[in-house]
């Protein structure tokens, strides 16, 4: 599924927070959006998912313009994983209930089978199925959140800082899982993060956002080599190079 974003503008109560962002993602590719808090990166992602209705411009999946209010079928194609695995699972529902919601809405068959399969796809034990979110670790919860997105059998996965609330050892497991899933299912990823290393690990192309503008689009390789133009990209890169390696 190709994704085209053209001159996307998003406002919150009269204040424009995304000021004309454009980018394209090829089918099966992974695109990263990096930026600091308030740069509008998560807002772009939420508008793509259909969680925000106050936008103008063009958001198109497979060449088809996405309407302001998405029909239910849209969510079989596009799913999202949120940042905080503690806040993205209903605190009073079992994992089973959380996972079966989308199949129930869409009248899918063999729900039990689907849940079992999706749990093993994210390497969770079947015994996790009837537990509550608070009985699971942060990494396990994020796996549940990924499973919830996968059960729709989507073509596009929108990832909003999927590892920034996790410990680094768990982050490695989740990043590996996301890489494997993309390869297995030919998924298209759009991932948002503030961490350049995480973004370049998973994405081949990166858009840099500051203050509602996407100031630069660069391949991960060029970013690595330092072939960048914008001052903000350079600053983020040098911080990453300097601080993410031990002294």
């Amino acid at each position: 599924m190709t994704i085209e974003i053209d001159n996307l503008r998003i406002s919150f109560v009269g204040r424009e927070v995304v000021k004309g962002v454009s980018f394209n993602v090829a089918k099966g590719a992974s695109f990263g959006i990096v930026g600091e808090s308030g740069s509008g990166k998560s807002t772009v992602l939420r508008a793509m998912a259909g969680l925000n209705n106050d936008w103008s411009g063009r958001i198109a999946f497979s060449g088809e313009d996405a309407p302001l209010f998405r029909p239910p079928a849209f969510f079989r194609k596009v799913q999202m994983v949120f940042q905080d695995p503690y806040g993205s699972l209903h605190p009073r529902q079992t994992i089973d209930r959380i996972l079966s919601e989308l199949p129930l809405v869409h009248g899918m068959d063999n729900i039990d089978d689907r849940i079992a399969k999706v749990l093993s796809a994210v390497a969770l034990p079947q015994t996790a199925r009837f537990r509550y979110p608070h009985q699971l670790s942060g990494g396990q919860r994020q796996r549940v959140a990924i499973a919830r997105a996968l059960i729709a059998e989507p073509e596009v996965l929108l990832l909003d800082e999927p590892t920034s609330a996790l410990d680094v050892s768990v982050q490695a497991e989740i990043l590996n899982l996301l890489a494997d899933l993309r390869a297995e299912r030919n998924l298209t990823y759009v991932m948002v993060s503030h961490n350049l290393s995480v973004i370049t690990h998973l994405c081949t192309e990166v858009g840099v956002m500051i203050d509602g503008h996407m100031v630069e689009q660069v391949t991960a390789e060029d970013l690595r080599l330092g072939n960048v133009n914008h001052a903000h990209t350079r600053e983020l890169r040098s911080l990453s190079v300097e601080l993410e390696e031990p002294a």
């Binding site: 969510f75 905080d84 959140a145």
Partner: peptide, 13 residues
């Protein structure tokens, strides 16, 4: 406004 409600909106329900 929580993420888990956003996730339910993304089921199309």
């Amino acid at each position: 406004g929580s993420d888990f409600i956003a996730a339910y909106r993304l089921t199309g329900g």
